[in-house]
Amino acid sequence: MAKESISFTYDPLNLSRKIIQIHAENKYDGNKSYSESVRFALFEFLRTMEDEEFKKIMTDYVLESKVKAIHFKGDENGGLTEDKDCVGIVDHLMSTERFKDLVFKNKRNGCSGLGVIVLKKKLFYQCEFGEHWSKVGKVLRENYPSYADAYDEMILDSDLKNYNDISREELDNFILENFDFVGGRNKIEYYLNN
């Protein structure tokens, strides 16, 4: 069989995007050391990433890591799982606000299990079944001490209407405005239809 050479051109941006996608699939797909929230966010980010956004990520990676050029080098099996540029670019991508917002959205949708969300701070506190209220109490004691004492007293005495100038209504409104409980993955309609 005779060998032939053919000429072709390629778009470096699209080729780089494909290499990063291959790296992400090899390293993250099904890898239980990363939460589903992170894995799903990564694949959604890559799927929806615009060219300008990818150019910015690549440019920022080059400037911050002080590399002269990006060289994608596969391992002896042709894989890109530990390629330093692939790892660096994905790490940089994962530090963007859009990626963090996607992870937060996935956590709110139950991809990280049961938990309590602090809405304004975009924090997720994992908990077990039936532990949501005790987790709220812990978060209040750690972050909102003025409400924590009132919470602790009112949870013990359901008839108590006011504690340290904080009314039950004010405490309830604060919790409703600042916290969200995350249950299982299924919306309530799932359970109602079954």
Rank of each mutant, 00 (worst) to 15 (best):
G78V: 11
L80V: 13
L80T: 01
L80H: 01
L80D: 02
E82F: 06
E82K: 13
E82Q: 14
K84W: 05
K84G: 03
K84C: 10
K84Q: 10
D85E: 13
C86I: 06
C86K: 00
V87Q: 12
V87I: 07
V87F: 07
G88H: 09
H92A: 07
H92T: 08
H92E: 08
M94Y: 00
S95H: 03
S95T: 10
T96Q: 13
E97W: 02
R98L: 09
F99A: 01
K100C: 05
D101V: 11
D101H: 08
D101Q: 13
L102P: 05
N106E: 12
N106Y: 02
N106D: 09
R108K: 14
G110Q: 06
S112Y: 04
S112D: 15
S112C: 13
L114Q: 07
L114K: 09
G115C: 10
I117D: 06
L119S: 12
K120G: 09
K121N: 11
K121H: 11
K122D: 03
K122W: 04
K122Q: 11
F124I: 11
Y125V: 14
Q126P: 05
Q126K: 14
F129S: 15
F129K: 15
G130H: 01
G130K: 07
G130N: 11
E131H: 06
E131I: 03
H132G: 01
H132C: 07
H132S: 12
W133C: 13
K135I: 09
V136P: 01
G137K: 05
G137R: 02
K138N: 09
L140C: 06
L140Y: 00
R141P: 00
R141K: 15
E142V: 04
Y144R: 02
Y144W: 05
A150Y: 02
D152R: 10
I155V: 15
D157A: 08
S158L: 11
L160F: 00
L160C: 06
K161D: 10
N162Y: 11
N162Q: 14
Y163W: 13
N164H: 10
